[in-house]
Lab assay of single mutants.
Amino acid sequence: ERLAYIADHLGFSWTELARELDFTEEQIHQIRIENPNSLQDQSHALLKYWLERDGKHATDTNLVECLTKINRMDIVHLME
Rank of each mutant, 00 (worst) to 15 (best):
E20P: 00
S43D: 02
I6P: 02
G55D: 14
H9T: 02
H29I: 08
G11Q: 12
F12V: 10
L63H: 01
D22T: 10
H29E: 10
A4P: 08
N37A: 14
E80D: 03
F23M: 11
N71Y: 02
E16N: 13
Q40I: 06
T15Y: 02
R32T: 06
F23L: 08
F23K: 00
A7G: 15
N62H: 13
E65R: 12
R2P: 02
H44L: 12
E34F: 03
Y5L: 15
P36D: 11
L17Q: 00
T59L: 10
T59K: 11
K48N: 14
W50K: 14
V76D: 04
A58Q: 14
L51E: 06
E16C: 07
R19P: 04
D54T: 13
L47R: 01
L46A: 15
T61Y: 07
A18P: 00
L17E: 00
L46T: 06
L63D: 00
K56I: 07
T24R: 11
R19N: 13
E25G: 08
L47E: 01
D8T: 15
N37M: 15
Q42P: 01
L3I: 14
L67R: 00
L63T: 02
N71H: 05
R19F: 04
Q42V: 04
G11L: 06
L46V: 08
Q30E: 12
E52N: 12
D54V: 11
T61A: 07
Q42W: 02
I28W: 01
Q27L: 10
R19W: 12
D54R: 08
I75W: 00
R53Y: 05
V76I: 14
A45D: 15
I70A: 07
T61S: 08
I28R: 04
E25T: 09
D54W: 10
S13M: 06
L17H: 00
T15A: 11
L46C: 15
E26M: 10
V64L: 12
A58N: 14
R72G: 04
T24S: 11
Q40A: 06
N35Q: 14
R53E: 05
N62P: 08
Q40T: 11
T68R: 08
G55L: 11
H9A: 06
G11H: 06
T68Y: 05
D8I: 03
L10T: 02
H57D: 09
V64Y: 10
Q30N: 06
P36K: 06
I33Q: 12
Y49E: 04
I6N: 01
Q27I: 10
Y49M: 14
E25Q: 12
V76A: 07
T61Q: 07
V64W: 05
C66E: 15
N35G: 03
K69R: 12
A45L: 12
Y49K: 09
L63G: 01
K69S: 10
W50M: 13
C66H: 13
D41M: 11
E26N: 11
Q30S: 08
W50V: 11
M73E: 15
A58V: 11
L46W: 15
Q30M: 13
L51G: 05
T68I: 06
E20I: 02
R32S: 09
C66P: 14
M73C: 15
I28S: 04
L47F: 14
A58K: 04
L3E: 03
P36V: 05
R2A: 01
H44Y: 04
D8Y: 02
A18W: 00
Q40M: 15
R19I: 14
L21F: 15
Y5S: 06
T15H: 03
E26K: 14
Q27Y: 03
H57M: 12
E16S: 11
D8P: 13
P36Y: 04
Y49Q: 10
E34T: 10
L47I: 09
N62V: 14
R32G: 09
S38I: 02
E34C: 02
R53M: 06
I70L: 09
H57T: 15
D60N: 02
Q27A: 06
A18F: 00
E52D: 04
I75V: 15
S38Q: 06
I33C: 12
I6R: 01
A4T: 15
E52Q: 15
T15N: 10
E25A: 12
D22R: 10
I70W: 01
K56C: 15
I70H: 02
N62M: 13
R53P: 04
G55Q: 13
A7Q: 07
D60L: 11
E52R: 10
D22A: 09
E34L: 09
L51T: 13
G55F: 05
Y5A: 14
A58M: 03
S13F: 10
Y5H: 13
V76P: 04
A18S: 04
G55A: 12
L3V: 12
D8F: 03
V64N: 02
Q40C: 05
W14R: 00
R53T: 11
W14Y: 03
S43W: 01
N62Y: 05
N35F: 07
D8Q: 15
L21W: 07
R72V: 01
G11C: 06
N71V: 03
I33W: 08
R72A: 04
R19Q: 14
E25N: 15
N62A: 12
Q27D: 03
R53W: 12
L47H: 01
T68H: 15
V64P: 03
H9F: 03
Q40R: 08
Y5N: 15
D60P: 08
D22W: 04
N37V: 13
I28Y: 04
V76R: 04
D54M: 12
K48Q: 07
T15P: 13
L67S: 01
L51N: 06
G55M: 09
L63Q: 00
F12T: 11
L67Q: 00
L39S: 11
T68F: 14
N37W: 07
M79I: 03
G55R: 05
Q27M: 12
D22V: 04
V76G: 04
N62W: 13
L10H: 00
D74L: 00
H57G: 11
L63Y: 05
D22G: 08
I6A: 00
T15I: 09
L51Y: 14
L46P: 00
K48C: 14
E52H: 07
T59E: 08
L39F: 12
E34A: 10
Q27S: 13
K48E: 11
Y5C: 15
I70Q: 02
D22S: 13
E65A: 12
E65Q: 12
D74T: 01
D60W: 08
E52M: 08
T61L: 15
T68V: 12
D74H: 01
L21Q: 03
I33N: 04
I28V: 09
I33A: 11
Q30W: 04
V64R: 13
K56F: 11
K69T: 11
G11F: 10
E65Y: 15
S38A: 13
S38K: 05
N37F: 12
E34V: 11
D74G: 01
Y49L: 13
E65P: 13
E26S: 07
A4K: 11
V64T: 13
P36A: 04
Y49W: 06
L63V: 07
D41S: 12
A18R: 00
F12C: 10
N35V: 07
N35T: 08
R19A: 08
L10Q: 01
K69V: 11
E25P: 13
N37L: 08
H57F: 06
L47T: 11
C66M: 13
T24P: 05
R72W: 01
I28K: 01
W50I: 10
I28H: 01
L10D: 02
P36S: 06
E16F: 07
E16T: 14
H29V: 14
E52W: 10
E34K: 10
H44G: 07
L63F: 05
I33V: 10
N37G: 11
H44P: 00
E52K: 14
C66I: 05
H57P: 13
G55S: 10
I6V: 06
R19E: 15
Q30A: 08
H9P: 03
I70E: 03
A18L: 00
T68A: 09
E52I: 10
E25S: 10
M79L: 14
D8A: 14
Y49N: 09
L3H: 10
R53D: 02
W14S: 00
V64Q: 08
D60C: 10
T61F: 09
D74N: 01
V64D: 04
L10E: 02
R72S: 15
Q30K: 06
G55Y: 09
I28Q: 04
S13A: 07
S38V: 07
E16M: 09
N35C: 09
T59Y: 15
V76M: 07
D22N: 06
E34Q: 15
N35L: 06
W50P: 01
E16H: 14
S38E: 07
N62T: 11
E16L: 14
R2D: 15
T61I: 13
N62C: 14
L39W: 10
E65L: 08
T59I: 03
L67H: 00
L47M: 15
Q27E: 13
R32N: 04
E65K: 07
K48P: 00
N35E: 10
L51Q: 15
L47Q: 01
Q27F: 12
F12R: 10
L17D: 00
E34G: 09
F12G: 12
S13K: 04
N37D: 12
S38G: 10
I70F: 01
T59C: 07
I6K: 01
L39H: 05
D60R: 08
H29C: 08
H57K: 14
Q30P: 00
I33S: 09
D74M: 00
E20S: 08
N62D: 14
L10A: 01
I70Y: 01
H57A: 13
H77Y: 07
N62F: 04
N71T: 04
R32V: 12
L63K: 01
M73V: 14
N71W: 02
K56E: 15
K56A: 11
F12W: 12
P36I: 01
T24H: 08
L46E: 00
D22Q: 13
A4Q: 11
L47N: 01
I31R: 00
K69P: 01
L3W: 06
Q42L: 03
A58L: 14
D8K: 12
